[in-house]
Amino acid sequence: MDPSAPHDAPIAPAARRRTRDRRGRGMRGPGVLPRTLGTPALRTDRERFDALVLDVVTILDDRWRAELGLVEYAVEDAPLVPDDWSTETVPLSSLIRGSGTTPSRLVVFRRPLEHRCETREELRAMVLTVVVEQVAELLGLPTEVVDPRFGSD
């Protein structure tokens, strides 16, 4: 404080700083409140990806259910590759053909797909491409027949 200033001089606004972040820990409390208590307000990346795959799979499965038969669809974070994996590419999906009463199994790997895409639209297009290619492989049909959107941009 300036010793020459009178004691009854007003304090400058810059000297008095109001903040709720007194100890530098950031904002307190939730940033977004849930609509219903006990449920998260925002979905996680994993939940959003699962919903994206479900949208694509539902459309294809409804269209080709009779020809496909029993198919299990799954999403995993990353593929388990052996230590002696020789190629530098990481699989984006896996298709295991069923036999008898065992259903076929189509697994989409989330992390490799997310790393290749910058936007949600690119991710949607990549998931569509991967799932259509696997379903076409399972049916033995060209990809354009399985889904007409496949050839379009």
Rank of each mutant, 00 (worst) to 15 (best):
L139N: 02
R65M: 08
F109H: 04
E144D: 12
Q134Y: 08
V146G: 03
R46Q: 07
D50W: 12
P10S: 07
S4W: 12
P30A: 01
H7P: 05
V131W: 03
G140S: 05
M27V: 14
G31Q: 00
G29K: 00
L33M: 11
L70C: 11
A74Q: 03
L33C: 10
A66M: 13
A74M: 06
R111Q: 10
E47L: 13
V90W: 01
A12V: 13
R120T: 15
T44F: 06
L70I: 12
P10M: 04
R111W: 14
P3M: 02
S4Q: 10
R149E: 01
S4K: 15
Y73V: 08
R105L: 10
E76T: 11
S152P: 04
P34H: 08
R63G: 03
V75M: 03
L68K: 11
R20P: 08
A78T: 11
G140K: 15
I11V: 15
S86W: 00
P10K: 05
D2W: 13
E114S: 05
V130Q: 05
P6S: 09
D55Y: 11
R16S: 06
L123Y: 08
P142L: 03
T102Q: 05
L42H: 02
E122Q: 09
V132P: 03
R23S: 09
D84C: 03
D45Y: 12
S93A: 14
R25A: 09
P3I: 11
V127T: 04
E67N: 07
V75W: 10
V108C: 06
V75Y: 09
G29S: 02
F49L: 07
D2F: 13
Y73L: 05
E76Q: 10
A9C: 14
T36P: 04
P112A: 01
E144I: 15
E76N: 07
P82R: 00
T19Q: 07
L60M: 05
P34N: 05
V53C: 07
F49C: 04
P82T: 01
T129G: 08
H7D: 00
G24K: 11
D55A: 09
V127C: 08
R23P: 08
V71S: 04
L54Y: 15
S4P: 08
R43E: 08
T87M: 00
V53G: 01
A125D: 09
A51S: 07
L37R: 06
V90N: 04
L123C: 05
E144A: 14
L37N: 04
D147H: 09
E76F: 13
R97E: 03
R20G: 01
P10E: 00
V32S: 00
R65Y: 06
T89L: 02
L106I: 10
D21V: 12
D45C: 12
R63K: 12
R110D: 00
